[in-house]
Simulated assay, not measured.
Amino acid sequence: MTRLAGRALRLTVLVGESDTWHHRPLYSEIVHRAHAAGLAGASVFRGIEGFGGSSLVHTARLLSLSEDLPVAVLIVDTEDRIRAFLPQLDELVTEGLVILDDCEVVRYTGRDGSGAVERE
């Protein structure tokens, strides 16, 4: 498991749920590339409402059947590793928003092969 503590960089990629890369959801492609790059972890969060550069509001409300809700992919790792990953995003994200934030990792734990949480 990757060790991560202290200063880090949070990468947030905001795209649409219907955005694709070679017939695959774009958010999924970003997560799989982050995994292949050995980054510490990635999570995808589906938004319930939002708008971006197009100024078109997308919502999950019942009366509005949006098929392109906002999706946020969050990745946290060291600054060097995140910045090394950015060229891949240049290739993938043609519409959306990419944000970098300084952050501090207070706790980063995973599970061992048995499903039990690793303890230090």
Rank of each mutant, 00 (worst) to 15 (best):
M1Y: 09
M1H: 12
R3D: 13
R3K: 15
L4Y: 06
L4G: 08
L4N: 08
A5N: 12
R7V: 03
R7N: 11
R7D: 14
A8T: 05
A8I: 04
A8C: 11
L9M: 12
L9E: 05
L9I: 07
L9H: 02
L11K: 02
T12L: 10
T12C: 07
V15P: 00
S18V: 02
T20Y: 03
T20N: 08
W21K: 02
H22F: 14
H22V: 11
H23S: 13
R24L: 15
P25V: 06
L26C: 06
S28V: 07
V31S: 05
V31Q: 02
V31T: 09
H32T: 08
R33Y: 06
R33C: 03
A34H: 03
A36T: 14
A36V: 10
G38K: 06
A40G: 06
A42W: 03
S43G: 11
S43H: 12
F45T: 13
R46T: 05
I48A: 10
I48W: 08
E49M: 01
G50S: 05
F51E: 00
G52R: 00
S54V: 10
S55K: 13
V57H: 03
A60E: 02
A60F: 01
R61K: 13
L62G: 09
L62T: 11
L63C: 07
S64I: 04
L65Q: 10
E67S: 04
L69V: 01
L69Q: 00
P70R: 00
A72M: 10
A72K: 02
V73W: 00
V76E: 05
V76S: 06
D77V: 03
T78Y: 01
E79R: 15
E79D: 13
D80G: 11
D80M: 07
R81Y: 01
I82D: 01
A84Y: 02
L86R: 12
P87W: 12
L89Y: 08
L89T: 07
D90M: 11
D90T: 15
L92W: 09
T94S: 14
T94N: 13
L97I: 09
L100P: 07
L100H: 07
L100D: 11
D102Y: 04
D102L: 07
C103K: 05
C103W: 02
V105R: 04
Y108H: 15
T109S: 10
G110K: 05
G110A: 12
R111Q: 14
D112N: 15
D112K: 07
G113D: 11
G113E: 14
V117S: 10
E118H: 12
